[in-house]
Measured scan of single mutants.
Amino acid sequence: MDSLVVLVLCLSCLLLLSLWRQSSGRGKLPPGPTPLPVIGNILQIGIKDISKSLTNLSKVYGPVFTLYFGLKPIVVLHGYEAVKEALIDLGEEFSGRGIFPLAERANRGFGIVFSNGKKWKEIRRFSLMTLRNFGMGKRSIEDRVQEEARCLVEELRKTKASPCDPTFILGCAPCNVICSIIFHKRFDYKDQQFLNLMEKLNENIKILSSPWIQICNNFSPIIDYFPGTHNKLLKNVAFMKSYILEKVKEHQESMDMNNPQDFIDCFLMKMEKEKHNQPSEFTIESLENTAVDLFGAGTETTSTTLRYALLLLLKHPEVTAKVQEEIERVIGRNRSPCMQDRSHMPYTDAVVHEVQRYIDLLPTSLPHAVTCDIKFRNYLIPKGTTILISLTSVLHDNKEFPNPEMFDPHHFLDEGGNFKKSKYFMPFSAGKRICVGEALAGMELFLFLTSILQNFNLKSLVDPKNLDTTPVVNGFASVPPFYQLCFIPV
């Protein structure tokens, strides 16, 4: 009986604490739906499609509103004006990374994606500088992407125009580009180590996009005490870190300090320079996690976009025909596509942009946080508050993009057929937390897609009208449904 009384008292205290925290903070924060004790607004949000729920709530509470995930307040920004004001106009104040408990377990605050403060700034600055020195957006990395595009075309030829699921092959190409940047090595598509790495990356994007992960991140005790797919994700990350550590040891034994070959060499050189400046942010643990982040951000996002792009091109054969006509006119058949071609191919450029806009790969991006107490639109948001960005509300804005739910390359073309930029184009987020590999991803999408369409016609196994382009999961990332196609050599 005594234990029951204690339990009831504990629960009562928890409920009172929950109510007090919510009521004391709500006077400062933007308005929002009334949260339930302990669980907050979790029942009012469709976990399978958070973005749709945010759109519905914005119609009631406006472009800036507050939700509670458990006891934790989260300020939501919906629509271009609110997102721009926060991420661009007040970029420094909104540059923090929001709480992501599962990532905390995986990387302990290291790396480039989930770190904060001085650690994040130094690692991000170093990573950007190193990638630029190796030619991100310049010639040397373009050579690597072109080489991988040629290998991709050869792998597709091996399908002999038979029906195939493109998931694996389209994942190999961007993964190999990242391998060449980090390890100075590309792998054969049949290499077992490479296959294991690909498998872990593919599993992780599916797990991260599941409703279960949303629950884990908002009720963090689940991570330590409950079984579930989150444990598989943590094991996959541990596998990748151990693999990278092996490569780091190989580099330490063979590195030429006067001739760095890749990202690992550059990081080890930085560690050597910083060894007298303790404590340094440049450690082996930081290198492991930064490399894992580059793999995660640079492989599955690009391969998922490529997979979605081919599905949309199957669905819209008239678009595919126009792209192939432009390829034939500008590039021809006797040389590989290059980035200089893009400025002469406005329709193809528009298609690449429209694919990214339409699929809305990361509907709410990753959570941000404010780095200080900030007054925002007459609300006071306390330091450390998590900020949720609705990228969907920007990419699918119906004023900027008429009929935003329709796939239409003319969203990025003017009346004369010239490519038209849009400030609403934010597939990689915006501001200080914009994806480090934005330029690389854009290069890969253009070169891989043009190389495929230069060499193959795409054949659907069903009537294009019957192809479903609805994402199968739409949590962290929008993942396309399973499909097969035939690559018919031109």
Results as ranks from 00 to 15, higher is better:
residue 5 V to M: 13
residue 7 L to D: 00
residue 15 L to Y: 11
residue 17 L to Y: 14
residue 17 L to A: 12
residue 20 W to D: 00
residue 20 W to G: 03
residue 21 R to M: 10
residue 33 P to M: 01
residue 33 P to N: 00
residue 34 T to D: 07
residue 37 P to F: 06
residue 38 V to P: 15
residue 40 G to Q: 01
residue 40 G to R: 01
residue 42 I to M: 08
residue 43 L to F: 13
residue 47 I to V: 09
residue 47 I to T: 15
residue 48 K to H: 15
residue 49 D to S: 10
residue 57 L to C: 08
residue 65 F to G: 01
residue 67 L to H: 03
residue 67 L to N: 00
residue 70 G to W: 05
residue 70 G to S: 03
residue 70 G to C: 05
residue 72 K to S: 07
residue 77 L to F: 11
residue 80 Y to A: 05
residue 80 Y to C: 04
residue 81 E to A: 11
residue 83 V to K: 01
residue 85 E to P: 02
residue 91 G to R: 07
residue 92 E to Y: 08
residue 93 E to A: 12
residue 96 G to W: 14
residue 97 R to A: 10
residue 99 I to V: 14
residue 103 A to D: 08
residue 103 A to V: 14
residue 109 G to T: 14
residue 111 G to F: 02
residue 114 F to G: 12
residue 115 S to K: 08
residue 117 G to S: 09
residue 118 K to N: 07
residue 121 K to C: 06
residue 124 R to S: 06
residue 124 R to P: 05
residue 128 L to H: 14
residue 131 L to N: 03
residue 133 N to C: 13
residue 133 N to V: 06
residue 137 G to P: 08
residue 137 G to A: 10
residue 138 K to G: 10
residue 138 K to R: 10
residue 138 K to T: 10
residue 142 E to V: 04
residue 142 E to P: 02
residue 144 R to H: 13
residue 144 R to M: 11
residue 146 Q to R: 12
residue 150 R to F: 10
residue 150 R to L: 10
residue 150 R to G: 06
residue 151 C to A: 15
residue 153 V to S: 03
residue 156 L to F: 09
residue 156 L to K: 00
residue 157 R to D: 05
residue 157 R to E: 13
residue 157 R to S: 09
residue 158 K to S: 12
residue 159 T to V: 03
residue 160 K to E: 10
residue 161 A to V: 04
residue 161 A to R: 06
residue 164 C to T: 15
residue 165 D to T: 05
residue 165 D to M: 00
residue 166 P to R: 01
residue 167 T to F: 05
residue 170 L to Q: 00
residue 172 C to K: 06
residue 173 A to T: 01
residue 174 P to D: 03
residue 175 C to A: 12
residue 180 S to T: 07
residue 186 R to M: 02
residue 186 R to L: 01
residue 187 F to Y: 11
residue 187 F to Q: 05
residue 191 D to H: 06
residue 192 Q to D: 06
residue 194 F to T: 02
residue 197 L to D: 01
residue 198 M to R: 10
residue 198 M to F: 14
residue 199 E to V: 09
residue 200 K to M: 13
residue 202 N to P: 03
residue 204 N to V: 10
residue 207 I to D: 03
residue 208 L to V: 12
residue 209 S to G: 11
residue 212 W to G: 03
residue 214 Q to D: 05
residue 218 N to A: 15
residue 218 N to I: 14
residue 219 F to D: 02
residue 220 S to M: 13
residue 221 P to W: 11
residue 222 I to K: 04
residue 222 I to M: 14
residue 223 I to R: 07
residue 223 I to P: 11
residue 229 T to S: 15
residue 229 T to V: 13
residue 230 H to V: 10
residue 232 K to G: 04
residue 233 L to A: 14
residue 237 V to L: 12
residue 240 M to T: 07
residue 244 I to L: 12
residue 246 E to G: 10
residue 248 V to S: 04
residue 249 K to Q: 12
residue 254 S to M: 13
residue 261 Q to S: 11
residue 261 Q to N: 09
residue 262 D to R: 03
residue 262 D to P: 02
residue 269 M to D: 11
residue 269 M to E: 13
residue 270 K to D: 05
residue 271 M to E: 05
residue 272 E to I: 15
residue 272 E to G: 14
residue 272 E to Y: 10
residue 274 E to H: 08
residue 274 E to R: 08
residue 277 N to V: 12
residue 277 N to K: 14
residue 279 P to R: 15
residue 281 E to T: 09
residue 283 T to V: 08
residue 285 E to H: 05
residue 286 S to K: 05
residue 288 E to K: 10
residue 291 A to G: 06
residue 291 A to L: 11
residue 292 V to Y: 12
residue 292 V to D: 03
residue 294 L to Y: 04
residue 295 F to G: 00
residue 301 T to H: 09
residue 301 T to A: 15
residue 303 S to C: 10
residue 306 L to M: 13
residue 308 Y to T: 02
residue 311 L to D: 00
residue 313 L to A: 04
residue 315 K to N: 03
residue 317 P to F: 03
residue 317 P to G: 07
residue 319 V to A: 09
residue 323 V to T: 08
residue 323 V to S: 04
residue 324 Q to V: 07
residue 327 I to V: 08
residue 328 E to T: 11
residue 328 E to P: 00
residue 329 R to Q: 14
residue 329 R to L: 11
residue 334 N to G: 11
residue 335 R to A: 06
residue 339 M to T: 12
residue 344 H to W: 08
residue 344 H to N: 13
residue 344 H to F: 12
residue 345 M to W: 01
residue 346 P to G: 03
residue 348 T to Y: 01
residue 350 A to Q: 01
residue 350 A to D: 00
residue 352 V to A: 04
residue 353 H to M: 03
residue 354 E to P: 00
residue 354 E to D: 02
residue 359 I to Q: 05
residue 360 D to Y: 02
residue 361 L to P: 03
residue 361 L to K: 09
residue 365 S to Q: 03
residue 366 L to W: 09
residue 367 P to L: 05
residue 368 H to S: 11
residue 368 H to I: 05
residue 370 V to N: 05
residue 371 T to E: 10
residue 372 C to V: 11
residue 374 I to G: 01
residue 374 I to A: 11
residue 376 F to G: 02
residue 377 R to V: 01
residue 378 N to A: 04
residue 379 Y to H: 07
residue 380 L to F: 07
residue 384 G to L: 02
residue 387 I to D: 00
residue 387 I to P: 00
residue 387 I to Q: 01
residue 389 I to G: 01
residue 391 L to T: 09
residue 394 V to S: 12
residue 396 H to E: 08
residue 397 D to S: 11
residue 398 N to M: 14
residue 401 F to V: 05
residue 401 F to K: 03
residue 402 P to Q: 09
residue 402 P to H: 14
residue 402 P to L: 08
residue 405 E to D: 07
residue 406 M to F: 15
residue 410 H to V: 09
residue 411 H to L: 01
residue 411 H to K: 03
residue 414 D to P: 02
residue 418 N to L: 11
residue 419 F to H: 11
residue 421 K to M: 12
residue 422 S to Q: 05
residue 424 Y to E: 07
residue 424 Y to I: 06
residue 425 F to C: 04
residue 426 M to G: 05
residue 427 P to G: 05
residue 427 P to T: 07
residue 427 P to Q: 14
residue 429 S to H: 05
residue 430 A to T: 14
residue 434 I to P: 02
residue 437 G to Y: 08
residue 438 E to D: 09
residue 440 L to A: 02
residue 442 G to R: 09
residue 445 L to H: 08
residue 445 L to T: 10
residue 445 L to M: 12
residue 448 F to S: 01
residue 450 T to K: 00
residue 451 S to P: 03
residue 453 L to A: 03
residue 455 N to A: 10
residue 455 N to K: 08
residue 460 S to A: 15
residue 462 V to Q: 13
residue 463 D to H: 14
residue 463 D to V: 05
residue 466 N to R: 08
residue 468 D to P: 07
residue 469 T to E: 10
residue 472 V to Q: 14
residue 473 V to P: 14
residue 475 G to Y: 10
residue 480 P to L: 03
residue 482 F to D: 15
residue 485 L to F: 01
residue 485 L to Q: 01
residue 486 C to T: 09
residue 487 F to S: 00
residue 487 F to L: 02
